[in-house]
Amino acid sequence: MATQLKSRSKVTEKKADPVIFNFPEEAQLEETIERPVIMQVKNLHKNYTKDTKVLKDINFDIREGELLSIIGPSGAGKSTLLRTINRMIEPTSGEIIFGDENITKLKGKGLRKMRTDIGMIFQHYNLVDRLSVFENVLHGLLGYKNSLQGILSLYSEEEKEKALEIITELGIEDHIYKRCDELSGGQKQRVGIARALIQDPKIILCDEPIASLDPRASMVIMEYLKRISRERGITVIVNLHQVDVAKKYSDRMIGLNAGEIVFNDAPEVMDQGIVTKIYGSKADELIVE
């Protein structure tokens, strides 16, 4: 699969615009229902205090290689839901089954091991500004290393080669030794994606990955996420504000309102009525198309 990716990026390099890809129609329409379930979220609740219930009885399955977007108004619990999946936020009750294991019970080493299987990218990229692009990408491997290797930045040549491959694939190979604060927003987000990819994850969680980017850079990032799910078979879960973007790229959409799932289906099913249900009465203003 890696060679396939490489050859494709080589071809596109010759074009004026190396970052926009067109997917064959059949890939777009491929049925996702057939794919095996890799994670089940069951009866998930999260209360910050007794009265502020952020997530109420969340149930859904996550399938291999799908691009799943979570939409909903601010404060609906999108970020909380995403972070409970890799236990950055502890759920109050409920189960998350990931690879035959209930990960809500994991601790210490087991928890770290589980997190290496789930990559994460962020709205504000969350890169270490003062380190190089190369170093930031290699941070994705820390979960696999012991503390001393991590402290002293001891990476093997093999790991460096792997990082280079991913960096090249994402088209930021000209900047490997630049400090991350010298990059543009779109480039930073690609470093973020590279850091997640080098983990060799089964799932990548994206928390508003395009909310701080201009429309063009946003499109590039969404195209990359789509490619990752298609070509590597990695499940990508994206929190989004933009309903139109979500409709365009997702295999499945989950609509969240006040901590409850009010929609969970293919994007084709999504219509104005459902958007209103998710966002409330002001939904008309949200649809730009």
Binding site: M88, T116, G119, H139, L142, G150, Q199
Partner: peptide, 13 residues
């Protein structure tokens, strides 16, 4: 810090 915790990094790392 959150980003590195999410990669499975340890406290000292």
């Amino acid at each position: 810090i959150e980003a590195l915790r999410a990669t499975g990094s340890s406290y000292w790392q």
